[in-house]
Design a protein around this nucleic acid. Structure first.
Lengths: 151, 151
DNA sequence: TCTCCTTAGTTGTAAGATGCAACAAAGGAA
DNA sequence: TTCCTTTGTTGCATCTTACAACTAAGGAGA
């Protein structure tokens, strides 16, 4: 009975072992990222930080857009945005093109805080990767990009 | 003013670009993993699945051990384990060496369910990586292991 | 042995996140 | 104008979690 894939796919133990190792390492990474997610910044939860980051990247958007992007109920977004507004981290302005909606943007303070958190995170990456030489960094980045593209 | 690190650390734009790319791709991976975490299995949340997996790997342990490992309050663990028990996925037996404690283990049904979920996840990895050749898989695994070791 | 402290686990209570349903306000089409 | 859709808020219920108080059991020392 001929295999439906090449012999090297099914029979190469080293290949299967490498896939296992990748799965194991990515699982460990995801687990660590999850456990660190709660310590982003005092006053910011994972959700509010992620919303603030998305608002910053998009240059402001409406609550409905946030709900769609994060697959959250609009009521949840409404309350989280209200919380961010209460903290002075976002500002709302009526959408001039549709008075039902509101454009939500990071405030100056919110943008500053976000920049601070992102800088801190970036410095952590630079620190972790400080011993890697350029070629390894580029190859690792290329592998990650290839992996993400297939997922 | 001489730099405190080598010139290639600070001045190599390609190197900085590669670190940025790694950070970007790992962030994207963590975000996707987080959003997929809620759809593990009907009836299993991320927390209960993770507990079941840990019980399986450890071959059973006490609630206090779970609380310490996941940095959760013992009351939270108590309720989650009660929930798993109600679903018939774990069993509790008194610890013969310390009658205060209980050894929690996956039930036959719990072990089957866990195996099913892990198999499904493993097949997904095999599928995603089916076009990679052996050398790339091994190098990627090595890079991930090196990265995780430094984090 | 008795007393006191520690440890394992459960339960009461409160806070926060979330989804669904109901609602108001505004847009848009017939 | 009338009816349906879209955007957002609020009431309500549920789930997760932490803290505190409690029970039961182990262990050390007088």
């Amino acid at each position: 009975m001929p295999p439906s894939t090449t012999a090297s796919d099914l029979l190469d133990g080293e290949r299967a072992e490498a896939v296992d190792a990748i799965q194991r390492e990515l699982t460990a990474f995801a687990r660590r990222a999850r456990s660190l997610a709660s310590q982003i910044h005092p006053g910011l939860t994972l959700v509010t930080f992620t919303i603030l980051d998305h608002l910053n990247e998009r240059g402001g958007c409406r609550g409905t857009d946030l709900a769609a992007h994060f697959m959250l109920d609009k009521s949840t977004v409404s309350r989280q945005v209200a919380s961010l507004e209460k903290l002075g981290l976002v500002e709302r302005t009526a959408d001039p093109e549709d008075l039902r909606g509101q454009i939500i943007r990071p405030s100056t303070q919110g943008a500053d805080l976000l920049r601070q958190v992102l800088d801190q995170r970036h410095r952590a990456y630079l620190q972790r990767l400080r011993d890697w030489d350029k070629d390894d960094l580029e190859r690792f980045a290329a592998y990650l990009a290839r992996y993400n593209a297939s997922a």
